[in-house]
Protein backbone atom coordinates (compact mmCIF):
# COMPACT_ATOMS: atom_id res chain seq x y z
CA UNK A 1 0.00 0.00 0.00
CA UNK A 2 1.38 3.36 -0.99
CA UNK A 3 1.75 5.97 1.75
CA UNK A 4 -0.29 8.56 -0.11
CA UNK A 5 -2.59 7.12 -2.74
CA UNK A 6 -1.57 8.48 -6.12
CA UNK A 7 -5.17 7.97 -7.29
CA UNK A 8 -6.32 10.55 -4.73
CA UNK A 9 -3.65 13.07 -5.76
CA UNK A 10 -4.46 12.54 -9.44
CA UNK A 11 -8.19 12.83 -8.78
CA UNK A 12 -7.75 16.10 -6.85
CA UNK A 13 -5.74 17.53 -9.77
CA UNK A 14 -8.43 16.48 -12.25
CA UNK A 15 -11.13 17.98 -10.02
CA UNK A 16 -9.13 21.18 -9.57
CA UNK A 17 -8.73 21.56 -13.33
CA UNK A 18 -12.52 21.21 -13.68
CA UNK A 19 -13.02 23.71 -10.83
CA UNK A 20 -10.85 26.33 -12.54
CA UNK A 21 -12.54 25.86 -15.92
CA UNK A 22 -15.97 26.17 -14.32
CA UNK A 23 -15.33 29.17 -12.08
CA UNK A 24 -13.15 31.11 -14.53
CA UNK A 25 -14.86 30.31 -17.85
CA UNK A 26 -18.22 28.84 -16.86
CA UNK A 27 -17.80 25.57 -18.74
CA UNK A 28 -17.74 21.84 -18.19
CA UNK A 29 -14.34 20.18 -18.59
CA UNK A 30 -15.22 17.24 -20.81
CA UNK A 31 -12.52 15.88 -23.08
CA UNK A 32 -14.77 14.29 -25.71
CA UNK A 33 -16.68 17.57 -26.00
CA UNK A 34 -13.47 19.60 -26.25
CA UNK A 35 -12.11 17.31 -28.96
CA UNK A 36 -15.36 17.38 -30.94
CA UNK A 37 -15.71 21.14 -30.69
CA UNK A 38 -12.11 21.64 -31.74
CA UNK A 39 -12.15 19.12 -34.58
CA UNK A 40 -15.69 19.41 -35.96
CA UNK A 41 -17.07 22.74 -34.85
CA UNK A 42 -19.78 20.70 -33.14
CA UNK A 43 -20.89 23.71 -31.20
CA UNK A 44 -22.37 26.46 -33.34
CA UNK A 45 -22.94 28.60 -30.29
CA UNK A 46 -21.20 31.92 -30.14
CA UNK A 47 -18.32 32.52 -27.85
CA UNK A 48 -16.60 29.24 -28.49
CA UNK A 49 -13.00 30.09 -29.10
CA UNK A 50 -11.53 26.93 -30.59
CA UNK A 51 -8.05 28.19 -30.03
CA UNK A 52 -8.60 28.27 -26.28
CA UNK A 53 -10.20 24.82 -26.35
CA UNK A 54 -7.19 23.48 -28.24
CA UNK A 55 -4.93 24.97 -25.55
CA UNK A 56 -6.60 22.75 -22.96
CA UNK A 57 -5.97 19.71 -25.15
CA UNK A 58 -2.31 20.68 -25.65
CA UNK A 59 -1.99 21.26 -21.91
CA UNK A 60 -3.40 17.77 -21.32
CA UNK A 61 -0.64 16.36 -23.54
CA UNK A 62 2.01 18.30 -21.62
CA UNK A 63 0.61 17.25 -18.23
CA UNK A 64 0.20 13.67 -19.40
CA UNK A 65 3.87 13.52 -20.33
CA UNK A 66 4.65 13.59 -16.60
CA UNK A 67 3.68 9.93 -16.50
CA UNK A 68 6.20 8.11 -14.30
CA UNK A 69 7.96 11.34 -13.27
CA UNK A 70 6.45 11.87 -9.80
CA UNK A 71 5.55 8.29 -8.98
CA UNK A 72 7.08 5.08 -10.12
CA UNK A 73 4.47 3.46 -12.38
CA UNK A 74 2.72 0.45 -10.90
CA UNK A 75 1.59 -0.72 -14.32
CA UNK A 76 3.39 -1.66 -17.51
CA UNK A 77 2.39 0.27 -20.65
CA UNK A 78 0.87 -2.11 -23.19
CA UNK A 79 3.18 -2.33 -26.19
CA UNK A 80 2.24 -5.02 -28.64
CA UNK A 81 -1.52 -4.83 -28.87
CA UNK A 82 -3.23 -5.34 -32.17
CA UNK A 83 -3.84 -2.11 -34.16
CA UNK A 84 -7.17 -3.60 -35.17
CA UNK A 85 -8.27 -3.77 -31.52
CA UNK A 86 -7.29 -0.12 -31.00
CA UNK A 87 -9.01 0.99 -34.19
CA UNK A 88 -12.27 -0.80 -33.40
CA UNK A 89 -12.21 0.48 -29.81
CA UNK A 90 -11.46 4.01 -31.02
CA UNK A 91 -14.33 3.98 -33.52
CA UNK A 92 -16.78 2.81 -30.85
CA UNK A 93 -15.56 5.34 -28.27
CA UNK A 94 -15.79 8.19 -30.80
CA UNK A 95 -19.26 7.20 -31.93
CA UNK A 96 -20.55 6.48 -28.41
CA UNK A 97 -19.23 9.60 -26.68
CA UNK A 98 -20.68 11.77 -29.48
CA UNK A 99 -24.03 10.01 -29.24
CA UNK A 100 -24.13 10.11 -25.43
CA UNK A 101 -22.70 13.64 -25.19
CA UNK A 102 -19.83 12.85 -22.89
CA UNK A 103 -17.18 10.59 -21.47
CA UNK A 104 -15.48 9.87 -18.16
CA UNK A 105 -14.53 13.51 -17.56
CA UNK A 106 -17.70 15.27 -18.73
CA UNK A 107 -20.28 12.84 -17.34
CA UNK A 108 -18.21 10.93 -14.77
CA UNK A 109 -16.53 13.85 -13.00
CA UNK A 110 -18.19 17.15 -13.94
CA UNK A 111 -21.75 15.87 -14.48
CA UNK A 112 -21.89 13.88 -11.26
CA UNK A 113 -20.39 16.85 -9.35
CA UNK A 114 -23.26 19.08 -10.41
CA UNK A 115 -25.82 16.38 -9.69
CA UNK A 116 -26.96 15.89 -13.30
CA UNK A 117 -29.22 12.85 -13.49
CA UNK A 118 -28.23 12.34 -17.15
CA UNK A 119 -24.58 12.11 -16.14
CA UNK A 120 -25.24 9.80 -13.20
CA UNK A 121 -27.19 7.43 -15.47
CA UNK A 122 -24.59 7.65 -18.24
CA UNK A 123 -21.71 6.97 -15.82
CA UNK A 124 -23.39 3.93 -14.28
CA UNK A 125 -24.21 2.67 -17.77
CA UNK A 126 -20.72 2.98 -19.23
CA UNK A 127 -19.11 1.56 -16.07
CA UNK A 128 -21.28 -1.55 -16.21
CA UNK A 129 -20.86 -1.83 -19.97
CA UNK A 130 -17.05 -1.56 -19.67
CA UNK A 131 -16.87 -4.11 -16.84
CA UNK A 132 -18.93 -6.59 -18.86
CA UNK A 133 -16.75 -5.95 -21.93
CA UNK A 134 -13.55 -6.64 -20.00
CA UNK A 135 -15.08 -9.80 -18.55
CA UNK A 136 -16.09 -11.05 -21.98
CA UNK A 137 -12.86 -10.13 -23.77
CA UNK A 138 -10.24 -10.96 -21.16
CA UNK A 139 -11.97 -13.80 -19.29
CA UNK A 140 -14.08 -15.57 -21.89
CA UNK A 141 -12.07 -14.98 -25.06
CA UNK A 142 -8.69 -13.76 -23.74
CA UNK A 143 -8.24 -11.03 -26.29
CA UNK A 144 -6.94 -7.53 -25.76
CA UNK A 145 -4.73 -8.49 -22.83
Amino acid sequence: MKFINSGVIGGVLIGFAALLYLLLYGRVLGVSGLINQTAFNKSKEQGTNKFYLAMILIGTLIGGSSYGVFFEPQFVMPNDRSPLLLIIAGLIVGFGTRMGNGCTSGHGVCGISRGSSRSIVATMTFMVSAIITVYVTSRLFQIGA
Partner: peptide
Protein backbone atom coordinates in the same frame (compact mmCIF):
# COMPACT_ATOMS: atom_id res chain seq x y z
CA UNK B 1 -27.68 8.95 -23.85
CA UNK B 2 -28.11 5.30 -22.86
CA UNK B 3 -26.98 3.72 -26.16
CA UNK B 4 -24.10 6.17 -26.42
CA UNK B 5 -22.97 5.29 -22.89
CA UNK B 6 -23.25 1.55 -23.60
CA UNK B 7 -21.14 1.92 -26.75
CA UNK B 8 -18.60 4.11 -25.01
CA UNK B 9 -18.28 1.49 -22.24
CA UNK B 10 -17.66 -1.26 -24.80
CA UNK B 11 -14.89 0.71 -26.52
CA UNK B 12 -13.41 1.74 -23.16
CA UNK B 13 -13.38 -1.88 -21.98
CA UNK B 14 -11.85 -3.12 -25.23
CA UNK B 15 -8.72 -0.95 -25.15
CA UNK B 16 -8.72 0.84 -21.77
CA UNK B 17 -8.75 4.30 -23.33
CA UNK B 18 -11.34 6.97 -22.72
CA UNK B 19 -10.80 10.27 -24.59
CA UNK B 20 -8.48 11.97 -22.02
CA UNK B 21 -6.01 9.09 -21.69
CA UNK B 22 -6.24 8.58 -25.47
CA UNK B 23 -4.83 12.11 -25.83
CA UNK B 24 -2.00 11.53 -23.36
CA UNK B 25 -1.21 8.27 -25.18
CA UNK B 26 0.09 10.43 -28.03
CA UNK B 27 3.07 11.18 -25.75
Amino acid sequence: LIFGAILFGIGWGLAGYCPGPALTALV
